[in-house]
Nucleic acid binder design. Structure first.
Lengths: 168, 168
DNA sequence: CTTACTTGCTTTGAATTCGAAGCCACCGGC
DNA sequence: GCCGGTGGCTTCGAATTCAAAGCAAGTAAG
């Protein structure tokens, strides 16, 4: 892949591979810690973390799924597990009976608080240990821009419900 | 998570989340294309791409698994699928009977060549569209350094085999 | 040569994942 | 109001994933 047929130059390709590799390695390391320290998978932690961050600790299922980049059915499954463990509760929204609002419980908040220091520690050691302030600023700016761009061109949502005619 | 209890500052945390989010979104987009265009999952493409890049198109199972950040059993499964489709071949190494050398076939190379342009195109649109040359250089340098650091502190390999054998 | 341990891969079993299909609740026009 | 269409979530079935257990080949010590 040293000459990608007019697509990306070597530096771009390297950056792309490095990005995917770094995120994979980081996820493995972090997942390992989360399981050991709080019996949480990476996705479960992401779900809880998003909820803790949300106003009133509540989010709709769909928004949650989009936030953590996860399938809806997958989120239903994970929400079932977290619900069983008493880390979240689910209730139909009073405003819209079809949507389900997910809320972190105190136990959920406590668990996040319990695993967060170790989690953050791992991330610092693996990701930020080899960066200085300038690197961080650059990375932050670039990734923020890229994220915005990607969210604008939705990858998964571009899928209409049933056979509909789309001229795009 | 605005005050992560002395671990990471807000900018670091944001960069970490952005990194994971970008890689997830990118993987989804790319995976979608690969399935549509070549009936390949993202992992399968990674495997083939690594092999195409390797000298003689051959690699040991273990090295391949480490390269794509995948479990050994998972790789065995995927290698089985790719073998069935005639995209790779497997043969015990002549030097070490227990290790299996995986080799891309011509069909495998052809398939990679077929999907590569579209793949690369997606990556360019999503990832590099919103970057200039300076961004790329910075990202490249940072991620390269981080990757090296992470590979040095192995995330998965630090797990010894767990002596479950006892003497009489 | 035998014994004990290590390394490399595969099999097994259980858990997770996703898309497709199905179910209700909301919205529009009639 | 009543109906077709859409949005939001869950169930279903099939595919994938991983760790643990199992096997076979290599290595070291005696």
């Amino acid at each position: 892949m040293s000459d990608p047929a007019g697509g990306l130059n070597a530096e771009q390709l390297g950056a792309y591979f490095a990005l995917m590799e770094v995120s994979s390695l980081l996820q493995y390391a972090v997942d390992e810690h989360l399981r050991a320290d709080g019996d949480l998978s990476y996705v479960q932690f992401q779900i809880l973390a998003r909820l803790v961050d949300a106003p009133d600790g509540r989010l709709r299922m769909t928004d949650l799924a989009d936030g953590v980049v996860y399938s809806r059915s997958g989120l239903t499954y994970q929400a079932g597990l977290l619900d069983k463990r008493g880390l979240i509760t689910r209730a139909p929204s009073p405003e819209d009976e079809r949507s389900v609002m997910v809320t972190v419980t105190d136990a959920g908040r406590a668990l996040v608080a319990h695993v967060l220091p170790g989690h953050v520690d791992r991330v610092r050691q693996l990701l930020f240990e080899s960066m200085d302030g300038q690197d961080l600023a650059a990375l932050s700016a670039i990734l923020g821009r890229v994220r915005g761009h990607m969210r604008a061109n939705p990858p998964r949502s571009a899928k209409p419900r049933a056979g509909r005619n789309r001229t795009d």
